[in-house]
Amino acid sequence: MSVKSATMLKTTYREAVREAIRDAMRRDDRVFLMGEDVGKYGGCYAVSLGLLEEFGPERIRDTPLSEAAFVGAGIGAALGGMRPIVEVMTVNFSLLALDQIVNTAATILHMSGGQFNVPLVIRMATGAGRQLAAQHSHSLEGWYAHIPGIKVLAPATLEDARGMLWAAIEDPDPVLIFEHAMLYGQEGELAEDVAAVDIDKAVIRRAGSDVSLITYGGTFYKTMQAAAELAKDGIEAEVIDLRSLRPLDNGTILDSVRRTHRAVIIDEGWRSGSLAAEVSARITEGAFYELDAPVARVCSAEVPMPYAKHLEEAAIPQLPGIVAAAREVLGTHV
């Protein structure tokens, strides 16, 4: 992130997203936010709290419970010259709009021979951790990353929560932004005056030479903790924050693996057919002869998310599992 001013502000991930929306609304009057309860209620995760008062109901637009219709309307409004930000409460509910996203937003540029691009941003919460069970907790961003025609972002840090939105709005094509629900309360400092970040490069958040830990979104902080844990034993892990799940930044991933010769991918999606599977395949395609150990994956158990706390915790990637997987590929497990 290019920092224009040295003033740092204490903030949260939630406030960073809110500030990004506010900033975009001020910069470009074609931008508007629409979704269920974004206005009067203040957003189901309180992201848009206060924006209705500031921008009014035309631009902070409450919608009925009609995911297919308002996501589709977002596509139409984008085609019609606006720059909509559509909020879907949770990735599970975006499935009611899957037709519009996959069959229209992702295809219309191609089907029209390049005539109609869709400058639309769709934001939604994703992930588990709050005992919301099997219709509110899944990580389906890996599915969306399967679809050519859309871009898929997963901001994990405050900088990205703040900076990715504007870049996504400026993008001529549909961009989906996945905000892990457990990150909203994340606190930190952010430069007061920030510029947009790029949205197609992964970032090395921690340099290391022994193993590459590749992750994104909700498992990012757990992975950083795992790296710190490993460092106590003198193992220097490199942590890659993918940031963009589509396109995937092959260069950063492969360069890292060529240096460390070992890779563990941490992904809250289910293992089978996951984003982690895709990253693993790319490593074997692009750096097979550099590997000193098979690629490892830490993913969610293949079960719909259970309600009971102990089962939910066991179902998703956790610190000990990440550390153990890293030790395994290093051959240093005890």
Partner: peptide
């Protein structure tokens, strides 16, 4: 629901109670 569902997902075959659906509609 054996603790798998929680408040939003009560199910009971014996009374033909088919949930507990948290997707509106």
């Amino acid at each position: 629901s054996r603790g798998r569902g929680g408040s939003m997902h009560l199910f009971d075959k014996a009374s033909r109670f088919y949930g507990g659906n948290a997707i509106v509609g």
